[in-house]
Design a protein around this nucleic acid. Structure first.
Lengths: 335, 335
DNA sequence: AAACCCCGTGGAAACGATTACACCGCCGAT
DNA sequence: ATCGGCGGTGTAATCGTTTCCACGGGGTTT
């Protein structure tokens, strides 16, 4: 592959001049600039980003470590992140942790060795030594969606509190009283927060939330299914199930169906995270929608602020309830 | 960030020895090896992959350019690719072309500048100059799923011919005679092939396939919707619609629903590419399933063979029909 | 006892770019 | 006529590794 030397030779100038010409440095004569451009084109010259990065100490690359690519929420997030980064002249390389802390560490390592300029993380767990070190050692970093308490890293997230309250209100108005929740892993902030918000809303409506109505999931479909099975085996099963993410909601639906029960007539179902597919499921699923794209954009802005030496602040957007039919007929069409 | 020099200084040896010690070179005394390891750990040393790549001329990174991350088929493929690559000691960086040839070229460029060791591509179009050049100039490359005819690049794909024939047989057996297809862009191989297979099967069953029953789509939901609208506006609309990918099938479903029609009673629906969500739609969608994960694995194997100087052969796996309820009640439960 | 080999190590070149610094004309100001 | 400055260019250092080659010393072989 042609290097800058070849271009220099072909255009009869030094490598320094080639570099300047190609990078738009002002003090290059138009004639030279043109000759260099021609030579570069003729040789199919493609600057070596590896060499450039070594010299300039920047890669113009952002790392994005997410918990699960197969989860539409994260793929939407990733897409938004890439878009925003590209607009600002950065590329992004994605590491999929698959909800596995070890794999997450693996990706953190490679990204750090690659000397990415900054790191966007949606942590799978409570934070490994690697994560803490990276944050402490000054790698520009920002958390998105999930975060790790106690680390001095900006967080870009959506607050679902109000939307969860709306959901409980919605369920309550439809006559449901026994509501259960499938929680995410306790090690994740989103795992806890959503349960807290739910618990609080339940209290507000004077509804009890017994321990056995809090299922333990891990943000994967199978765990949603297991938790739901446990609910349905209870002497007094819940009338509605709220899954703390979309994959677990799918698992819940599987389990409900496999018992010959119907949603929403026999059991109501709602999910955290709204995704395109929820419109097409049977029935369409009521969900708490996060402003996914905005989350991604804001996260990139915050990270690049840090990368380029500016201050970066945490940002909290808000989620909203999207009512569909999985909790019962909406009020309007009831009579 | 600590460099190899710092480690050398701290352990009292030369950088050469540090390099050897850390890379497991045999001719380093155990004592030295240990001292070096200790120093590296104490300093939190993390080898600079950029410098290493510059020196060794390899990045241990594969590029993967896909047409649309939001399409579950591709995210599943990406995930399989990453898994396989990681197992072989490579990382992968993904470029999402969003079905846009220009964006595809942008990603090709950055990946090439990054000096990835090899490139996996599922082309969005018929092949830009950049693509042809890359292939010609010896960048190890393999196509996956879609390919570009005329380029001497191995192709890893699934043959849907038999499965499409099975689908037509299935539709025929359910009494459907007027079958329509929503094709992908003519510039993609998968766009054409699927239509060809369909046409051939139709001929076999003695069914006519008029031009107006061939809709033109672009692998995005909206185009599926438009094409379906056109079908349904026909004086004699088709009894069944086969979408050449999952997103277009979704669009088709939207359109059918919005007219107050039911699947499959009023119009039968089937799709190419099976995805997890099809189980949960209303009704569950009958689809031609590609062996996505195997495709990803095979593609990585082929690419790495090329990267490491071995011969790489094309591989063709086969797809199979997965019957659900979107074309009518399956034969078994009919009576 | 001389020659040889091997082991562990260090010195230094190389990878391909960027950029500080020096240089050389040339023009305009004095 | 001399000087200063400036526009355009080249030389060389540098980034952090890997790896070729050389070297010293101890043991083995003759």
């Amino acid at each position: 592959m042609a290097s800058i030397k070849d271009v220099a030779a072909r255009s009869g100038v030094s490598v320094a001049t080639v570099s300047r010409a190609l990078n738009g440095h002002p003090s290059v004569s138009p004639a030279t600039r043109e000759r260099v451009a021609a030579a570069a084109a003729a040789l199919g010259y493609r600057p070596n980003a590896v060499a450039r990065s070594l010299r300039t100490h920047q890669t113009r690359t952002l790392g994005l470590v997410i918990s699960d690519v197969l989860n539409p929420f994260f793929t939407e997030l990733a897409r938004a992140v890439e878009d925003a980064a590209r607009a600002l002249g950065y590329s992004v390389v994605i590491g999929n942790a698959d909800e596995d802390p070890q794999l997450q560490d693996h990706h953190m390592s490679t990204l750090l060795e690659r000397r990415i300029d900054g790191l966007l993380v949606s942590p799978t767990d409570g934070g490994s030594a690697l994560m803490t070190d990276a944050a402490a050692s000054g790698t520009p970093m920002v958390f998105v969606d999930r975060w790790i308490p106690g680390l001095d890293v900006p967080v870009v997230r959506a607050d679902g509190r109000a939307a969860v309250r709306d959901l409980v209100a919605h369920l309550h108005s439809l006559g449901h009283r026994r509501l259960a929740i499938i929680a995410g892993p306790a090690a994740t902030t989103t795992g806890n927060e959503r349960v807290d918000a739910f618990r609080e809303a339940m209290r507000e409506f004077g509804l009890p939330l017994p321990e056995e109505y809090i299922g333990q999931g891990d943000f994967r479909a199978a765990s949603g299914r297991r938790a739901t099975a446990r609910f349905l085996d209870l002497p007094e099963p819940p009338q509605a199930v709220f899954a703390a993410d979309n994959l677990m909601a799918l698992g819940a639906m599987d389990e409900i169906r496999s018992r010959g029960l119907r949603v929403p007539q026999d059991v109501a179902l709602a999910a955290f995270d709204d995704i395109a597919w929820f419109v097409h499921t049977d029935p369409p699923i009521t969900a708490v929608a996060q402003p996914t794209a905005e989350l991604g954009h804001a996260a990139v802005r915050a990270l690049i602020d840090r990368v380029e030496g500016r201050e970066a602040a945490s940002v909290t957007l808000s989620a909203r309830l999207v009512v569909r039919r999985s909790c019962g007929e909406p009020e309007g069409s009831k009579r």
